[in-house]
Design a protein around this nucleic acid. Sequence first.
DNA 1: TTTGCTCTACGAATATATTCGTAATCAAAT
DNA 2: ATTTGATTACGAATATATTCGTAGAGCAAA
Lengths: 125, 125
Amino acid sequence: MQQTIKPTESEMEILNILWELGPATVRDVHEKLALTKDAGYTTTLKLMQIMLEKQLVTRDASTKTHVYTAAVSQHNTRGQIVQRMIENVFNGSAMQLVMQALGNHPASADELAQIRQYLDSKTTK
Amino acid sequence: MQQTIKPTESEMEILNILWELGPATVRDVHEKLALTKDAGYTTTLKLMQIMLEKQLVTRDASTKTHVYTAAVSQHNTRGQIVQRMIENVFNGSAMQLVMQALGNHPASADELAQIRQYLDSKTTK
DNA sequence: TTTGCTCTACGAATATATTCGTAATCAAAT
DNA sequence: ATTTGATTACGAATATATTCGTAGAGCAAA
């Protein structure tokens, strides 16, 4: 079995940045985070140290300035979070989640076409 | 503006039960909860009292045994939770959430048809 | 009335999440 | 070598979530 991935809200923000940047220093992450969030540098540092303990990230400590890398994949992480939400919020119905998401967000024609294509590939399979 | 609805995981379990049962006592809720979760009666009671403070529920205290009712709608609650998840986990892309949910859950032909119908109604609109 | 059962109120213990200050360390610039 | 600035380690304060024990009130049966 694989590990359970359950990042907190703050940890999720950092994972998003690491997925985008690839390997990055605390400074890198903090600067990106500071664009949308008001937090001190040591707060970001501490969070990333905790994420290391939880094995959400790995780090290269061979130089003074450590380099962090996401240790969990975006797809797997998103999958687990969505799964929990389906169970906890939507009584186990993935379809109800999909309908809710579609209902609240007017999708573009392109996006709708993309979903249709996806549905087709599932049906014919 | 309306209130922000942000139930915790435990609170969500109770809301699900209240939405299903309608007005119910702590005992009612607890018995349903006990089917899937191992918690003491006073734990359930305390949770529902906290939910009252947060105005997630209302209660009728005119009799000794109080009767609780959900004070937030299922649709609105689900919408807000999905919205937050889209922002925090999917970088603001509702479509990516939809794709993830569809990808992880083999849907039945009926469900796929339901989604198709929904997409059609949006496209032609 | 007394006993026994159910209910609510409430405090407290525990766990987890978030934030930040301070001290120590290291390296580069002077 | 000394100073300056950046970095890490770590403890601590605070907030929130979760759990449950105990006390007291209400009510009905004996």
